[in-house]
Computed example of a mutant assay.
Amino acid sequence: MATIKDVAKLANVAPSTVSRVIANNPRISDKTKVRVREAMGELGYHPNFIARSLANKSTEAIGLVIPSSADKAFQNPFFPEIIRGISKGVHQKHYSLQMSTGETEDEIFEGVMQMVEGKRVDGIILLYSRVDDKLTGYLKRKKFPFVIVGKPFKDIEEITHVDNDNYRAAKEVTEHLIYLGHEQIAFVGGNLNFVVTIDRLLGYEKAIRNANLVYRDEYIVHEEFLKEGGQEAVKELFSLKEPPTALVVADDLMALGVLNMLDTMGINVPNDVSVVSFNNVMLSEVSRPPLTTVDINIFQLGYEAAKNMIQIIEEPLEPMKRIIVPYRIVERQSCIEYVKEHLQSV
């Protein structure tokens, strides 16, 4: 079995240089890295990462925490895409990923405690920001490195986080509907325990009030970020005496449920009701009709979270950062200018 010394001899470098190449040390030139890696490949040498972890007191692993059971979360294309971004970021630094798999909040908390207390990971990325999340408090008390995807509910100046300006994005898409002549605009949001839902609701409300439109409580519906959530929201909104002419939906998967239910009820999008959404996952492009949606750059959110997590691990004195990933509104065929006759013909 090949050793570090064998690799060093073949590559004509010191054994310590081989170790630095394995650790992807930035001080080693790319030319030397290529030579050493070619020697490793030729000899079939594979580093013993467990032994290295014990020596370095580092696992070179990062924990991932999703907001609900994996079965439920992975129904939403947001999570595979953000994990793809995180994977790219950790792979570049030769870190691995470990995911929490709890079914409930308590089980997720227990799983993270095991990661932290058992020193199984060097840092944790939370793929959500929850109101009064006990997990965030625990990690802060432990002084354990972590990054949040989303805006922290509190202690925002003390926690590195990667986010979009969800307030501004929701305000802009609502203004887009107002510009098209809509006055009866409903908001279909996710769970109000998540900060992203609150930010998007506040942005929607600001646009409504700025336009001197009536803010109606019955136009605000909160469901799960799932297809079924969108379906339930439509049933509720279109049983109203004055149903909306446009919908701001906080998530593309929910919006797919919205489109399906509207079609079942014989309500045409966009002729009878306009729909805008968030995330710009593949679903939004292939839905019927294709959705106008906010592209929040999910992959980049994940990549930035991983990059900053590793920076905190490797440079513990790194100051807190707020990374805002830009968004853009992608206009498709789910919105048109409002004409009163449309709704009256339903």
Rank of each mutant, 00 (worst) to 15 (best):
T264E: 11
I208G: 02
A233G: 01
R27Y: 07
V18T: 08
S100E: 06
F109A: 02
E172P: 11
P15L: 03
Q333S: 15
E318D: 13
P26E: 01
E157H: 08
Y303C: 07
Y45T: 15
N191Y: 10
L213W: 06
N12Q: 08
V36F: 13
A246D: 06
I28N: 03
V248D: 05
F225I: 11
V18C: 06
E285L: 15
Q92R: 13
R37D: 03
Y95S: 04
E228H: 01
N191E: 09
P289K: 10
I312M: 11
M282N: 15
R322D: 08
A207P: 02
V346P: 01
S68F: 09
L201A: 05
E158C: 06
T197C: 09
L54K: 02
G302D: 08
P47S: 03
L135T: 07
Q300D: 12
N12Y: 15
R35M: 08
S19E: 07
D6A: 10
E60A: 14
I83G: 04
A51C: 02
E117M: 10
R141A: 11
R200L: 14
D133F: 15
L247D: 04
P15Q: 00
N166S: 09
E218C: 06
L180A: 12
N297R: 08
V286H: 05
S129E: 01
H94A: 10
D295S: 11
S274A: 09
A207F: 00
I329Y: 06
Y215K: 15
V339Q: 11
D106Q: 14
L135W: 07
E341Q: 09
L54T: 07
E242Q: 14
G190V: 09
N193T: 11
I28Y: 04
G111C: 08
I178Y: 02
M265S: 15
I220E: 10
Y327Q: 12
D251I: 06
N191A: 05
I124M: 03
P319G: 01
S277C: 12
V21Q: 00
N164M: 14
F49P: 03
Y219A: 00
H161M: 13
R35V: 09
A246Y: 00
E158M: 05
P270V: 06
V195N: 08
G118M: 04
D132A: 15
N308V: 03
G150W: 01
H161T: 13
C335D: 01
V149F: 02
K5Q: 14
T293K: 04
A70E: 10
K119I: 01
K134M: 10
I22M: 13
Y215R: 12
S69H: 10
I298D: 00
R332F: 09
K307P: 00
I148A: 02
T174K: 05
P80W: 14
S274M: 13
V149M: 13
P290K: 04
P326W: 11
P290H: 08
A255F: 00
P26I: 02
I324P: 15
A73D: 12
E107Q: 15
Q75M: 14
F79D: 10
P77R: 12
I50H: 03
I324A: 12
R200Y: 14
E38F: 11
S96I: 01
E304M: 15
G229F: 02
M1R: 13
E107T: 09
V258A: 05
L64D: 04
